[in-house]
Simulated scan of single mutants.
Amino acid sequence: MNLAFIINDIKTEKSDYTTVHLALTAHRMGHKIYLIGAGELAYTTDGRMSAQAHTVKDTKYKSSDVFLKVLQESEPVNITSDDLDVLFIRNDPSDDQNDRTWAQNSPYVFGQIAMKNGVLVLNHPVTLPNSINKMYFQHFPEIIRPKTVITRDQNEIEEFFKEQKNRMILKPLQGSGGKNVFLVEEKTKKNLKQIIEAISRDGYIIAQEYLPKAKDGDTRMFLMNGEPLKVDGKYAAIRRVNSNGDIRSNIHAGGHPEKAKVDEAMLKLADALRPKLIQDGMFLIGIDIVGDKLMEVNVFSPGTLNLMSTEYGVDFCKAVIEAIERKIHYKETYGENVDNATLAIL
Rank of each mutant, 00 (worst) to 15 (best):
I345F: 02
V66D: 12
I287Y: 03
T18K: 09
S131H: 15
H139Y: 14
D9G: 02
A214Y: 00
I289V: 12
A207C: 02
P93T: 13
T18H: 06
I79G: 10
G281K: 02
L223A: 09
P228A: 13
L22K: 04
R28A: 01
P141T: 01
A270L: 03
D263Q: 05
L71H: 13
R90N: 10
E40A: 02
S74H: 10
N225F: 08
D16Y: 08
G255H: 00
R239Q: 13
G313I: 13
A42S: 03
T18G: 07
H21T: 09
F5D: 03
A26P: 00
Y108R: 04
N298C: 05
N191I: 07
N117F: 08
A207W: 08
H21V: 09
K190Y: 10
I324T: 07
E296P: 15
G47A: 05
E296R: 15
H27P: 00
F5T: 01
P76F: 08
G286Q: 09
I89A: 02
R239C: 05
D65W: 11
A323P: 14
D99H: 11
L211A: 03
K134R: 06
Y210V: 03
H252Y: 15
A103Y: 09
K230W: 04
V184C: 03
Y235T: 08
T55L: 03
N98D: 15
N242P: 09
K268N: 14
G226V: 13
E258N: 08
T188Q: 01
L68S: 05
M29P: 04
D95Y: 11
F222S: 01
L192Y: 01
N180H: 07
I206H: 01
T55H: 04
W102P: 09
F5R: 00
S63C: 04
K276G: 00
T127N: 07
Q174N: 04
D82F: 07
K162S: 13
R248M: 00
K116H: 11
A214M: 06
Y136I: 15
V262Y: 01
Y43N: 06
P93V: 10
M224E: 07
G303C: 09
L346Y: 14
M1G: 02
E258G: 02
L122H: 11
P212R: 02
Q279K: 11
L273N: 10
E185T: 04
N155W: 05
I345C: 03
D232T: 05
D153W: 10
R48M: 02
P93G: 02
V77I: 15
K261C: 02
I199D: 06
D99A: 09
E75T: 10
N8F: 00
L267P: 02
R220Y: 00
I199Y: 03
Y235W: 15
A253T: 06
A38H: 07
N191F: 13
S243W: 11
I251K: 08
R201V: 13
I79Q: 08
V320A: 07
L223Y: 07
K147Y: 07
G286N: 05
A323T: 14
Y43G: 06
